[in-house]
Design a protein around this nucleic acid. Structure first.
Lengths: 115, 115
DNA sequence: CATTCGCACAACCATTTGGTTGTATATTAT
DNA sequence: ATAATATACAACCAAATGGTTGTGCGAATG
C-alpha cells in the first residue's frame, strides 16, 4: 500500500506559496492576523486601487490563507487558523529536511577536516 | 533610529516564495538536498523538455535556493545552505506570528466560553 | 427616496510564466 | 577528427499576473 503524504503533494501548496510570494499579500496576511479588517480598510493602506487590493485578497482566499465574512455592508477579512497551521507544518517539513541535510554536512566536515 | 529587519523586508523573499510555488521546483529542491545532481540528471526525472527543467533550475538559482557548480562538462546543482537557513528563519517568523495570534485566540476563548 | 459606501465583476493592458523547438558551444569519448 | 553529451540561449506561444478603469448592485445614511 502506497501512503501518499497529502499535506505535501496537494495542489494547493502551489497556491499557498504563490500567495505568499508577494510583499503586499504577505503584508495583508500580517495585518489581518493582528486584527481582522474590511477590504476597504486594507485598501486604504496601499498605494493602489481598491480593485487591486481586492484581487490580492482573492489570491489569499484561493489559498485559504484568509477568509471573508460579511458583516453589514462590509466584508471582513480574517486569517484562517486551519490553513495557516497547515502552511506552518508544510514549512516545518522543509525545515526538517534541510536541517537533516545540514547536520549530515556538519558531520562529514567534523569527521574529515581536510576534505 | 529605525531598525530595518533585513531578513523580512528584502525583495528576494518574493523570489524565494515564488520559487517554491511550483511542484516541480519543490521536487528539484528536495532531490538536490538529498543528493547533488547534474541538470540533465534532474531533467531525466520529469516529463518535460531539458530546457524547461533548465528554466526551473534558473528560477531556484535566482532565489539562491540552489547553486550550480561546473564539473567537467556537467553542471552540478546543489542546495545552498545559507539561503535555505534564511528561508527557514523567514518561515519561522510567520510561524511565530501565527502562533502568537492562535494563543491570543485561545486565551480569549478560555476567558469567555459564551463568546 | 436619494445618496453614499463597500464591494463584485468585467474589460483591458503590459509583463511574466511555463512550456516548446531550434541553434550554438564546450567537453568528453571513439 | 568526429561524434556524442551537457549545457546555454534565443525565439516563440498560450496562459496567468498585477495592475488599471468602469459599471452595477446591495446596504446604510441623510
Amino acid at each position: 500500500m502506497v501512503v501518499r503524504m497529502a499535506t505535501m503533494s496537494d495542489g494547493n501548496v502551489d497556491a499557498i506559496f504563490h500567495a505568499l510570494a508577494d510583499t503586499t499579500r504577505r503584508d495583508i496576511v500580517t495585518r489581518v492576523i493582528a486584527r481582522e479588517q474590511s477590504v476597504s480598510s486594507l485598501a486604504s493602506e496601499y498605494a493602489m486601487s481598491f480593485a487591486a487590493v481586492q484581487k490580492h485578497v482573492a489570491v489569499l482566499e484561493r489559498a485559504s490563507l484568509v477568509v471573508k465574512q460579511r458583516r453589514g455592508r462590509e466584508q471582513i477579512v480574517h486569517a484562517d487558523p486551519a490553513t495557516i497551521e497547515r502552511a506552518r507544518l508544510l514549512l516545518e517539513h522543509f525545515e526538517t529536511l534541510w536541517r537533516h541535510r545540514a547536520e549530515a554536512i556538519d558531520r562529514i566536515l567534523a569527521e574529515d577536516p581536510e576534505h
